[in-house]
Design a protein around this nucleic acid. Structure first.
Lengths: 251, 251
DNA sequence: ACCTGAACACCGTTCAAGT
DNA sequence: ACCTGAACACCGTTCAAGT
């Protein structure tokens, strides 16, 4: 992906003037099964990506699923990169946003925003990879980031610090979630649970002469599943970050 | 990449029993130019990846660069995934590790470790994408992580907390660096500096009706370049994280 | 032991043509 | 306006063959 053809650097779908004429009437025409339109294509793409992973997601497979020739899709969507951006924004719309009227503490809202983002990304592991590749400035992504900005605006942080604070939180969440998804996928590929797979890798590493069983990495489950520990670690690091950025503030 | 063929899930190179016989003598044979060996292939791969990006990096291009038929490479390396893992571990070897004998504060060493990691990844933008895909358990990567563990072991954190603390730091660094690399690459692809490109995107977004110029994202340069601000934000977030995890400790 | 040539089973996408 | 068919220019990789 990502502009094999170096001649003309690809612009984000969201920065491309809308092709107005193309595929704009699917909705009005009645959603009789056979008909193609942008939304149906995107929804199908998301479903296939979820079911089979991005490695197996091809324009040809998508067309087959839509009962159509590969090139039909191109009437509605310019190229695969655009489609990925569209699909990504679609799942961004699934992120549960906290109700601003609920009057909760901003820290709580920030944490639940982070958790909602993580949940959605883990539910669509291909999405986080795409998130790293594209600009993520579609309407749903922008709504999410507007919500995050509204939350941080309720913090006692000086206005000039807020963007950096928000970036820090979501860079962390992105990093955490990337790793988490990858382990889950590795496990799935290997036909094991993530726990089993981690255990297996740790075992192989322990035998290697390079690292003298340096401790760490593993051997820290005492009754809790890896999943529970992941959740706890996620929360803890968020607390650290938030506590750190609030240190020395009046509130 | 990543196991298109779902039949047999790929194992990491590092978990594969070494093929001992293959390509093991390049060094002894004298490094006369024409000869192929594992190390030469890896070094050339890294160079091509650096020069042209991973999108253009193909086994065929690599073979051409090595003045050889595409299939020659396969005598030494099983497949492209393995090669990527090998290349990734090679650049991991470039990360500057702090001298443990220097007697610096553990926080300082942790920060410089994070910065060194970030620098190396930004110098090889393809590497951070690979880092998200593979297991990263090669010898050089393990040496890095052993060093990080040694640093955190000098902290006053209780032993049980250390792995989580280390994870949190490097998850953040990974997230930060992913975004940073991506912006730099976007700028390069568009033939602009990262600053110009960000400016351009921000301009386009501001015009969109979706987001009512929510503020944030931009308009926060006061004499400093974006690069300087990035560096400062990176340091700040690390400080927050470290301060947060040390809060309530005796030291 | 090492390297080649030809081929296979794919990709995304262009382009001219159909209805 | 919408969809198709054939083709192009690629991929990674297998397999049998050369030296």
């Amino acid at each position: 992906m990502a502009a094999k053809r170096a001649s003309q650097p690809r612009r984000s779908v969201w920065l491309t003037p809308e092709p107005t004429t193309r595929g704009r009437r699917g909705a009005e025409r009645g959603s009789g099964a056979g008909h193609l339109d942008r939304e149906k294509i995107i929804a199908t793409a998301v479903r296939l990506l979820d079911e089979q992973g991005d490695a197996k997601f091809t324009m040809r497979a998508l067309a087959t699923e839509l009962d159509v020739t590969p090139m039909s899709v191109y009437w509605y969507i310019a190229n695969k990169d655009d489609l990925m951006e569209l699909a990504l924004d679609a799942v961004a719309g699934e992120i549960e946003l906290p109700d601003p009227a609920a009057g909760r503490d901003w820290r709580e809202d920030l944490r639940s925003l982070a958790l909602a983002w993580r949940r959605t990304m883990v539910a669509h592991p291909w999405a986080i990879r795409s998130y790293g590749e594209y600009l993520n400035i579609g309407p749903q992504s922008m709504q999410f980031s507007a919500c995050a900005q509204a939350v941080i605006a309720r913090s006692p942080l000086p206005e000039a610090e807020r963007p950096a604070a928000l970036s820090a939180v979501f860079q962390y969440v992105y990093g955490f979630t990337s790793m988490e998804s990858r382990w889950l996928e590795y496990g799935k590929e290997a036909g094991r649970t993530a726990d089993e797979f981690l255990e297996e890798v740790a075992g192989s590493i322990a035998q290697s002469p390079e690292i003298a069983a340096g401790g760490g990495l593993m051997e820290r489950h005492s009754g809790h599943s890896l999943g529970e520990m992941r959740d706890r670690d996620f929360d803890r690091a968020l607390d650290w970050l938030i506590a750190g950025m609030c240190a020395g503030l009046s509130d």
